[in-house]
Design a protein around this nucleic acid. Structure first.
Lengths: 348, 348
DNA sequence: CTGTTAGCGCATTCAT
DNA sequence: ATGAATGCGCTAACAG
């Protein structure tokens, strides 16, 4: 291990001068500075960050706790967003995967604090309410893709409502009037918000919601398949389906194709999530709504590095980041206007 | 910030005694120990890890560099495996996402070293050769899902060959004899290894490879679709397809269904990767080969915490971890034996 | 069993 | 503009 003292000896100055050079103090003569720099280079000197931390009380590290990064493809984007934002500020991320286990979460927070992290980012893999380990409150804290029920913690979430609104609005603008929504159980903030967006858009067009057209179930392909099948048995089938997830949309694809319907010719489909693996590689490519995971990650870091913004407002409202529309090939104007009328063709 | 000195004052002992208690030294009287513990508890004392690190020279942190964790659903599993293994040893992971950029990689290694990491894990998101940033060699180093071309670094990779072998063998055991393989370009170690497994299994059954049945392309759904279509135009179509990725298999599904073929009734399909999102939720569920990402992650940490195993062997052979078969519903014995003969039904 | 002294690598006084 | 002393919180040696 080579220290500033070694560099000082080689450069023929006191070790304090080396310290000044390292910390870019302006009070060092240029030639001395060069000499020190060359010595440091020759010795492959690296500052010892922990020693520095002891003096400055700044560890330049954030703790990043997530409940489950393995089973979901989303997590990585949050981490990457946070990571890149941190890197720009010369900060690092200490990551913890808690598996949603409260005891592990508590232990993780303690380990993070022992390491002197300057703040904690707590991220979940789907939008939900969380119970934050109490020790975490001792530090600057930001929640990502989740919120505390009592609104006592700063948090950033996707704007589900405007996402649902954009999706439905697109369908409306294309000329669809009979639009189904396959949603998950409304106990999820995501499902609830996306539905409100759907409702708002329909209202704007002075359309009433047909309860037959709103299907509730789970988030997965199977749910999409089943609900689409049910939709196709209706007397008057819709011309477009807004699916609350890309997975649901994939199930809808299967059902539609199986019944010989063309997408988007016979039925337009729009998803939600913009899961690369599904949406960007399906036949046809799925038009969908993107969730700003990356942006939420970087927002969290920005917010943590900028405590100046902190105020005493209470309760703290979660910040909702926009969910942009990703236009691909599964939405088109309704082909046969007859289909929208009461003498529509029955399937099967 | 409360230190051991504060605790010492409250407990009425010297601060060194507190240090002993914290470090579980056996040379402390029980009642004193209790007193110290209670004082520490009352003060919510937390050891300052970096201060400790300065004395012990042990940071209890590993650096985890990965090229791209956002765009792939696999990464998380490696991190989680590494993370959990580290946690068990009271170690933490400092994660870096380099985007595959060499300059960033270099910077990340330097930052990790400055933080005194005790070792570096370098993971890639698909099996390939890598150029390791040279400073990384200064520390214990393990490569995950990649290897250095000159075999100078310890590494762990999936056993692609045995994976390809298991997949093909399953098909063979079910009675298939005309088995196609849709593979990616053989410049990828994964593609090359999986093909060798395919070849080995066929050889074992004294079957020769029909070049018509081996299709090369990319890893994606579109590739699977195209190649399957080509396969279906053959005079003698196969009864089963081994796809080098689940994504390819999904494309094959689309093509097969579009042509009115039932899976697995008319055609058995087996994938590779075991991507939850695809394989576990397709219709029918996809039988596939799992890649031991989680295991590779924990293996890396185990290896790093156990330098005793280090020897001077050179070159170092990458350790290949097994790829288990995940049986689901897309493989069956061939229904119509006639299909395997030369007067097979032509599609279209 | 317990306390004292020293020093890890660095930065912050305060000198010069 | 540069240097000497001091201490961040902790543990390793050595005393007692």
């Amino acid at each position: 291990m080579t220290t500033i003292k070694d560099v000082a000896v080689l450069a023929g100055v006191s070790f304090k001068t080396v310290s000044r050079v390292i910390n870019r103090s302006p009070h060092v003569k240029e030639d001395v500075r060069q000499r020190v720099l060359r010595a440091a280079d020759a010795l492959e000197y690296r500052p010892h960050h922990h020693a520095r931390h002891m003096r400055t009380q700044r560890s330049k590290v954030f703790g990043f706790l997530s409940d489950d990064i393995a089973t979901t493809p989303f997590a990585g984007q949050i981490i990457q967003g946070a990571q890149e934002a941190a890197f720009r500020k010369e900060m690092l991320l200490l990551t913890f995967n808690t598996g949603g286990n409260a005891a592990v979460e508590q232990a993780a927070v303690e380990m993070a604090i022992e390491r002197g992290v300057e703040g904690i980012i707590f991220a979940t893999m789907y939008h939900r309410a969380v119970q934050v380990p109490k020790d975490a409150f001792r530090l600057p804290l930001v929640l990502v893709d989740c919120f505390s029920p009592d609104r006592s913690v700063r948090s950033v979430v996707p704007d589900e409502v405007s996402g649902g609104y954009s999706a439905t609005k697109l369908l409306l603008e294309k000329g669809h009037r009979r639009i189904a929504m396959i949603n998950a159980n409304q106990k999820y903030p995501a499902a609830e918000g996306r539905f409100r967006g759907y409702r708002d858009a329909l209202r704007e067009y002075r359309l009433t919601i047909d309860p037959e057209l709103v299907r509730l179930g789970g988030w997965w392909q199977d749910d999409g398949y089943e609900q689409t099948m049910a939709l196709l048995k209706l007397k008057q089938i819709p011309t477009a389906i807004f699916c609350a997830s890309d997975r649901i949309a994939m199930g809808a694809y299967d059902a539609l194709k199986e019944q010989g319907l063309k997408i988007p010719g016979d039925m337009s489909v729009i998803g939600f999530d913009n899961q690369e693996l599904l949406a960007a590689h399906s036949r046809p490519r799925l038009t969908t709504i993107s969730i700003p995971y990356f942006e939420m990650g970087s927002w969290a870091v920005e917010r943590l590095t900028n405590t100046a913004q902190d105020s005493d407002e209470s309760p703290i409202r979660p910040v909702a980041l926009p969910c942009p529309l990703i236009a691909r090939s599964s939405v088109e104007r309704p082909a046969n206007r007859k289909l929208r009328n009461k003498d529509s063709a029955h399937i099967r």
